[in-house]
Write a protein that binds this DNA or RNA. Structure first.
Lengths: 119, 119
DNA sequence: TTGACATATTCCGATCTCGGAATATATTGT
DNA sequence: ACAATATATTCCGAGATCGGAATATGTCAA
């Protein structure tokens, strides 16, 4: 097995800087492909390909408007990422709390042994 | 040019599911490589390589303990990701607000034309 | 229908990926 | 010094990447 596909999940999709740029732009409001290309200075096929990936992980939606296609964002697809980051931080602070608690317990023990003397 | 390196930034580093697993584990508390390998059912070289990537983007730190190496997390390295997600959501809600505001403006216009009649 | 415009798709090549196996490097205990 | 243990590194191959160029598809307008 090798590396995962860019469109296999949100994490891989947003690993690309240009894809993040495109997504930011589309968060501001619905945009046509050429519009995105002009704004970000990329060429059209590249933008189309990136948008395809974003579409496959449902970060964006498409709508037809004549000969154009208007893309808009669906940031709810970022939720797994947000949730994972939050989880890691929760685990981490829980870990810090445990360390602190242990330190306090040891301090109490020491206080008991010394009969309340601080030094 | 081709694809970016896994260790080129945090986004690429966390794109790997196994790397996310390892990171979660290390968030809970300092762990030795073999410990991680046993817990997650991966083999040691694989874990070492993933940890190397995580180290290069500063998601983890290492400390020597005899012949072992103890890895611990530094979730502050996830901040760029958190910030980017937040930014996108901010842009998005701002966009929704603008739409809503426009709708209200149009409703007011209509109310003016109809002299206050609702239907 | 034909042409202009907007977008999508395909093909290419250099490069990176990840897992697996083998091997190298450290450190400890005897 | 030597064996055992813990970890890191290297080499390999199948597969996926991204940009670029060329081309295909689709839609409107005259």
């Amino acid at each position: 097995m090798a590396r995962a596909t860019a469109a296999s999940d949100v994490y891989n999709a947003i690993a690309e800087p240009r894809r993040r740029e495109i997504f930011e732009l589309v968060c501001v409001g619905e945009r046509a492909v050429g519009d995105v290309a002009d704004t970000l200075g990329m060429d059209q096929p590249s933008v189309s390909k990136h948008l395809k990936v974003l579409r496959e992980v449902e970060l964006v939606k498409v709508r037809r408007d004549g000969r154009r296609r208007l893309y808009s964002a669906d940031p709810s697809a970022l939720e797994p990422v947000e949730a994972w980051v939050a989880k890691c931080e929760r685990l981490w602070t829980r870990h810090l709390d445990a360390i602190e608690e242990r330190a306090e317990r040891m301090a109490r023990q020491r206080a008991d042994r010394t009969g309340g003397r601080t030094t």
